[in-house]
């Protein structure tokens, strides 16, 4: 089973859109002791489902907001399909941890927001939002306001809001962290279905290794102080993943051992497993 963890790409690039290149990126917030990110290099192929895990404060959100174009690196550059990212754009959409939906708009209006900003005519917007809400199983709740939805429903609206944009890259910052385990499992399943259907590049941030092994083609482990990429695995398992608890436990154990070893090494423990940074094969 361990052969499923490797450094080879899981599938050949499934599209031409959505290649993200992060080159030598550093970010030092003014006043912070250590850089939030230090010389991070990462190339993400089109259609890859990349999950970034790491302790709090290791720069995961910072990384994501740079790809989104909301923040700029002090040093280095981020490219999308060869173009330098300078600002947010319709080729990237984001699901925020605290959903970030607009409470003054209905579900439909929230989903249509990006299209409206892009000047898409109303009937086309309506059609697109209807489809997207169908995909996330929310067609019953289109006219509700955000505060009338459950946490899981909110996150699904947030996903639908991204889907209508047909972005090249989907950015997700701990999108399911605030949900209960059952809802999370349901959303993992839906996420898999969506991913299989669209094959977009997904960059997904989480604290949870279980979430990572359920979803990822590739797991990036980051470490804090300064924020750096410490590990880069590929998980060669087909989507959608028909995992039961023991499968998850198995992969979690494998992945977690790697992380723990690295933590120990990083903390200066005697057992230095590896100095390797970057792609790693078990």
């Amino acid at each position: 089973m361990s052969s499923n963890l490797s450094s080879k790409p899981n599938h050949p690039s499934s599209g031409t859109r959505g290649k993200v290149e992060i080159q030598g990126v550093s970010r030092h917030y003014p006043g912070a002791e250590k850089p939030a990110m230090l010389d991070v290099n990462l190339t993400i192929e089109p259609g890859e489902f990349v999950v970034i895990v790491g302790p709090s404060g290791c720069g995961k959100s910072t990384l994501l907001s740079m790809v989104a174009g909301l923040a700029k690196p002090d040093k280095g550059q981020v490219f999308l399909d060869g173009k330098l990212i300078k600002s947010p754009g319709p080729d990237r959409a984001m699901v925020f941890q605290e959903h970030g939906l607009f409470p003054w708009l209905t579900v439909t209006q929230n989903v249509e927001f990006g299209l409206k900003m892009a000047g898409v005519p109303p009937d086309q917007r309506r059609e697109a939002s209807r489809k997207a809400l169908d995909l996330v199983h929310l067609s019953e709740h289109t006219e509700k306001f955000i505060h009338q939805l459950s946490g899981g429903m909110k996150q699904r609206v947030a996903i639908a809001r991204c889907l209508v944009m047909d972005p090249a890259v989907l950015l997700m910052d701990e999108p399911f962290a605030a949900l209960d385990a059952q809802t999370r499992t349901m959303l993992h399943e839906q996420m898999q279905e969506l991913y299989v259907e669209m094959k977009k590049t997904v960059i997904f941030v989480t604290h949870s290794v279980a979430e990572a092994v359920r979803l990822a083609d590739r797991i990036i482990v980051m470490h804090a102080n300064p924020g750096r990429v410490r590990r880069d695995f590929r998980l060669n398992l087909p989507h959608p993943r028909d995992f039961d608890a023991s499968d998850v436990a198995y992969y979690m154990k494998t992945v977690r051992k790697e992380i723990d070893d690295e933590v120990n090494a990083h903390a200066g423990a005697s057992r230095r497993v590896s100095e390797g940074v970057g792609s790693y094969e078990i």
């Binding site: 990237r92 959409a93 984001m94 970030g100 939906l101 607009f102 003054w104 927001f113 900003m117 809001r161």
Partner: peptide, 27 residues
């Protein structure tokens, strides 16, 4: 700030950013 970020990510620029995001967020 998340409303601002979401507005920017979903393409609210210039005057639209104010009328479609900041104004309602500031209600």
């Amino acid at each position: 700030t998340i409303y601002r970020s979401a507005g920017l990510v979903f393409g609210a620029h210039g005057i639209k950013f104010y009328t479609q995001v900041m104004l309602p967020a500031g209600l």
